[in-house]
């Protein structure tokens, strides 16, 4: 490529292929922009709002850290490879394990929290 063909844009050297890509992106963006209006943007905003809620939930709790670690437990890996079949007696036996007891305790609190949040959520939504 000759030096003459290269363009200097604010100190960044761009060759004609880069410029073609930029022009292509701009023209494609124009297509998207032309089909966007104040109604469609409301739909996009609703999707974003739900994503932000999930994002907030993820960054606001240690549960993600617990899950991150728990999902990498070798015993859990083994269980996924060869799922243990637990009958009623097996479950009762596992309940004597301290870690299982803690897991049940955490899940019980999660159930309570979900129940409480469901009631509150209905109250909030009725006031919108």
């Amino acid at each position: 490529m000759s030096e003459e063909e290269r363009k200097d844009v604010q100190g960044m050297e761009l060759d004609p292929n880069d410029l073609d890509t930029l022009v292509d992106m701009l023209k494609t963006y124009r297509l998207l922009q032309n089909y966007m209006n104040d109604e469609t943007l409301k739909g996009i905003a609703d999707v974003e709002s739900s994503m932000f809620k999930l994002l907030n939930a993820m960054i606001s709790t240690d549960f993600v850290d617990v899950l991150e670690r728990g999902l990498q437990e070798p015993e859990f890996d083994k269980a996924l490879l060869e799922p243990p079949q637990l009958g009623m007696m097996g479950i009762i036996r596992e309940l004597k394990d301290e870690d299982v007891q803690k897991g049940v305790g955490v899940m019980m609190e999660l159930l309570k929290a979900i129940g409480k949040a469901s009631t509150e959520n209905n109250e909030f939504k009725s006031r919108h």
């Binding site: 922009q33 943007l41 932000f52 907030n56 960054i59």
Partner: peptide, 23 residues
């Protein structure tokens, strides 16, 4: 710009879950 309009308009909808939640 036109995109500026869309971003600005959209902000009021996501205000509750982005801005206020301090994400």
């Amino acid at each position: 710009t036109r995109l500026g309009w869309y971003i600005y308009r959209m902000y009021y909808y996501i205000h509750w879950d982005a801005g206020l939640k301090a994400l």
